[in-house]
Design a protein around this nucleic acid. Structure first.
Lengths: 386, 386
DNA sequence: CTGTTAGCGCTTTCAT
DNA sequence: ATGAAAGCGCTAACAG
């Protein structure tokens, strides 16, 4: 008889079906060695009682919980949102469930500790493995599979998949330089994030390769938020020799740049070209539509989950998978929209004699990229660089 | 001595600190009755070992886990995203953690079962209480606190907070009618959702109150997706007497309507007014910016979490809270942007003689609403209806 | 103040 | 094919 009000336990089921708890457990786990009749009877009682096994108890005893965890920093950046969307889409159809934990907006310093704590608390407990998004530490102390998305630290000891940030930035710069821009402003991201560092590295490398000087006043700090783009724009506009193009480290900031430019009466793209990074949905809807770099978050997340699942099944078979420390890098591609054009000649200043266009730095000329970008709307997959 | 590789347990800590496990447990839970010296020593060992208590074991034994769960359907609709964003923001600063579970895109029928299962598996196990978003069933079998957001079923036995969907729809209609529209198309939502039903009820009621006939060809089915808006728009455009305004049950569909209108060469708002519902971020960025109804998801989620927390603490004190079945309704407000205007007179058709403008149905005239909406950009809180 | 002792709900040998 | 019993890591009386 089920205990009147409280949720039924395996004991209630056992009692009602007149078998032992171990038999119920066997039915629950679809073990082979149960008589068909018994199996059916127990199954019936389970249905009738609406019994559900407790995640905690089950996780504590058995190695497999059939759920994977997603540990992420705050979700105020659209990046995190995209990841969780992609993850929930990818997980559909697998036998696994997804639980996501976020930590609210803690500071960078506390975050590392927080992440470590979540990993420990979840993994091997209610979770068979975890994915951590933008980890703040170089290693995690867990016996269970873990793969990072967009890892921050260079010498990470865990598996990770991230996108080729430097390559993406190079593509942006090649495009802008190809258009004829020589004064290109850069809005930076949080300096402790590897992704931001790589993007800046791409910006710098492209400048150098094109033989252009690095002007510190053209590099503005940012924190990935829209407001940072706005203050950067104000700064750029106040410059004696303002940039003709601005490359922001992410779309939110690029959008902020465009907003502020509009307020300032600077027309985009006529008077100012703007490029973002991430290709969030808002980029396509912006006015003008924002040229951006698509990181392919969905394939990235898919790859991460596949790897995680493989590590999990590897672990369950006892062997330490060789992929436990695999570092996967995903290609990204430039999506050309309406926010850029060839800079207008400026009669009010002396025209520095430069070559017809600045030397493009990447393999493909801007026109080819434009073609590539065209195909994107049709769902074409055309990685710009590997 | 910690067991070489595996994550340390409370026993390892106890052994290393030369105390009993119960003392460690006391330290973990910050109980009063531990000598300061012992407390410090144990604390030190915990630090040194990097010990973290297992969520599963702790949840199984104690009544309190300090985490609340968020159970939601698939996250392909921006609504769900907004909820999870708001929840993670609201939870920041409380002593609670948040875990979110999604179920992938199962069908409606399976979803009820899935939700029930998650609730049972989480609640009282790893979770002190749960919030379920858009529940598909009328009751949940759980002993632990549960509050629903945007509940679907009328006779729900659980606490819930939802927004005043009918009131929102009435406001939209009052605005449109006040502008002079008399042929207003409606793009419906999934029929089994209470929110959609209420919005349609508002549409219908407004029509009736204004003495306008209900034209079935002006009501199109929809599933909340952008594509549904597009097909609805094609349908409307093909009508002999097409509508001059379209009210879509959510923003995604309204955006689809606008997209398709543009393809069809129908100018918004000059030739067609469009209104959405939800006020997702994309609405403000659309071209033209979409007039919509703001449900105030954040306050709604905040209210839900506050209620949940109260139910949890009530439960922990033993008493059954009176609020266990509370049904809270939140006001929503019209956000007027650029997607609507007075319909152009149509010389190609006979002008039906009607009063100067159709009789507005809600309390406030359109101009007042416009003023209300204006204040929104400045963060003003001006509920349109209670 | 601290240790001992029972379990929480489940899986898993080991018997039968 | 099934049951009994021993824990998983932890908390909560109950002793001392």
């Amino acid at each position: 008889m089920p205990r009147s009000r409280s949720a039924p336990t395996i004991h209630d089921v056992a009692a009602a079906a007149e078998v032992s708890v171990s038999t119920v457990s066997r039915v629950l786990n679809a073990k082979e060695d149960v008589a068909a009749a018994t199996f059916a009877r127990v199954q019936g009682v389970i249905e009738a009682l609406g019994y559900e096994s407790s995640m905690a108890a089950r996780g504590m005893r058995s190695s497999s919980t059939q759920v994977i965890g997603l540990i992420m920093p705050d979700m105020d950046h659209s990046y995190g949102i995209e990841v969780i969307k992609a993850a929930s889409r990818v997980i559909t159809g697998t036998a696994y469930d997804l639980v996501a934990m976020t930590c609210g907006s803690k500071h960078h310093a506390e975050r590392g500790r927080w992440q470590q704590q979540r990993v420990r608390r979840l993994n091997g407990t209610i979770t068979d493995g975890v994915i951590v998004v933008v980890p703040d530490v170089a290693s995690f102390d867990t016996d269970y599979p873990l793969v990072a998305i967009d890892r921050m630290v260079a010498g990470a000891t865990y598996a990770s998949v991230s996108s080729d940030n430097q390559g993406g930035a190079l593509a942006v710069m090649a495009y802008l330089l190809g258009l004829g821009h020589t004064r290109i402003g850069y809005v930076d991201g949080l300096e402790f994030l590897e992704s931001a560092a790589h993007r800046r590295a791409g910006y710098l490398a492209a400048l150098e390769a094109a033989g252009l000087p690095v002007d510190p006043s053209l590099i503005q700090p940012g924190d990935f938020k829209r407001s940072a783009g706005r203050v950067a724009m104000r700064h750029f506009a106040a410059l004696a020799d303002p940039p003709t193009a601005i490359f922001a480290c992410n779309d939110d900031m690029a959008l902020g740049v465009m907003e502020e430019a509009q307020l300032l009466g600077i027309k985009v793209p006529e008077a100012l070209s703007v490029v973002g990074y991430d290709n969030v949905p808002e980029a396509a809807n912006a006015r003008p539509a924002l040229t951006s770099v698509d990181q392919g978050i969905e394939p990235m997340v898919q790859m991460a989950i596949e790897l995680l699942l493989e590590l999990i099944s590897g672990r369950e078979r006892g062997g330490d998978s060789a992929r436990m420390q695999e570092q996967i890098k995903m290609p990204s591609r430039l999506v050309v929209r309406d926010s850029c054009m060839t800079p207008a000649p400026r009669p009010d200043r002396q025209m520095p004699s430069r070559k017809a266009t600045a030397k493009p730095v990447a393999a493909q000329p801007a026109t080819a990229q434009q073609a590539t970008a065209k195909s994107i709307k049709k769902g074409g997959e055309a990685p710009l660089h590997a």
